[in-house]
Design a protein around this nucleic acid. Structure first.
Lengths: 174, 174
DNA sequence: AATGAAATCGACCAGCA
DNA sequence: TGCTGGTCGATTTCATT
């Protein structure tokens, strides 16, 4: 039904408050949200649906602890590709599809891709790096171990500067 | 000695199937899950609760589209710290607390921290980099723009190698 | 956009294998 | 411990404003 573009949505302070809350913990009850925002449960639900339909909220997902699967080893691998290999989007997809690869960034600068991977053992990491090197067009790699991760706050909205937050609100009211 | 993992839970194939599903989309109904797994709704619910209680599932959260907030600019900043600054955990926390910073990795090697940040404008990025440099103990920084991100599959479980998946299952049956 | 009532679905409990 | 079936409370839907 709704063909939503990547344009900025109309969001007010109430929307931001709801998003900030459910981004942190979607298990919060409608009643709690309604009380906090002085709205009816139905109104909160209506807004949540609208946020989902407009793809401001892309989905709801369970956050799984990597350690529960023994995924204790994280590595960051810089990947440079041969210049003549042209369109690099395919390479990015291939890297991203490798098992153990968590996220791939295509960057400007001396390095072309930054690959973040998460595995159980050093052997698995070695295998993975071999697979990265084997990807057509990959030239050179350089990996470093991650000793510690900081991602306590994965919330986008609570992470906005006042300036950025205001920019979002301003985009709606005019 | 065997390098096994501290709080590894007892997980069977059914648990993995449930996790794989709700990690991708928690809005799936109990009935759908129950049908797919040939279980009763109560059984699925029982297992989900157990997974939450044991912190295999750390929480449930809404996935927000950064573009809906105009957060179109991603940068990766390598940060080196002065050697004499000793305990670097505090620096990691400080970096992570900066508004716009999405994730911080503390790494072995020539670079000490890798900082991934997400902002609306180049000005905001410049401000953020200034703040990074201003953190006590930070020595040098080097940033690169991200042109494209690949994170289509944020699911841990579907991202396990067969080997890794088997290791999880084997850890239960001992 | 928001409401209240009605239908539907999820959370919890006692009991059972 | 893992599961079942049933009950109650919460969520979703819908007509109405």
């Amino acid at each position: 039904m709704e063909g939503t573009l990547h344009t900025q949505q109309d969001l007010d302070e109430t929307d931001l408050a709801i998003i900030e809350r459910v981004e942190e913990d979607f298990d919060v009850s409608l009643e709690t949200l309604a009380d906090e925002l002085d709205l009816s449960k139905s109104a909160v639900h209506y807004r949540l649906n609208k946020l989902k339909d407009s793809d401001v909220i892309k989905g709801v997902s369970a956050d799984v602890d990597p350690l529960a699967f023994g995924l204790e080893m994280v590595a960051i691998t810089d990947v440079s590709v041969a210049h003549e290999s042209g369109y690099s989007e395919n390479i990015g997809e291939e890297l991203n599809d490798l098992e153990g690869v968590e996220r791939v960034y295509y960057t400007m600068g001396d390095v072309d891709f930054v690959v973040v991977s998460r595995v159980q053992t050093r052997d698995q990491l070695n295998d993975l790096i071999d697979q990265i090197v084997a990807v057509e067009g990959v030239n050179e790699t350089s990996s470093k171990f991650v000793m510690q991760e900081f991602d306590a706050d994965s919330s986008l909205v609570s992470n906005l500067t006042d300036e950025a937050r205001q920019a979002v609100l301003d985009a709606s009211t005019n």
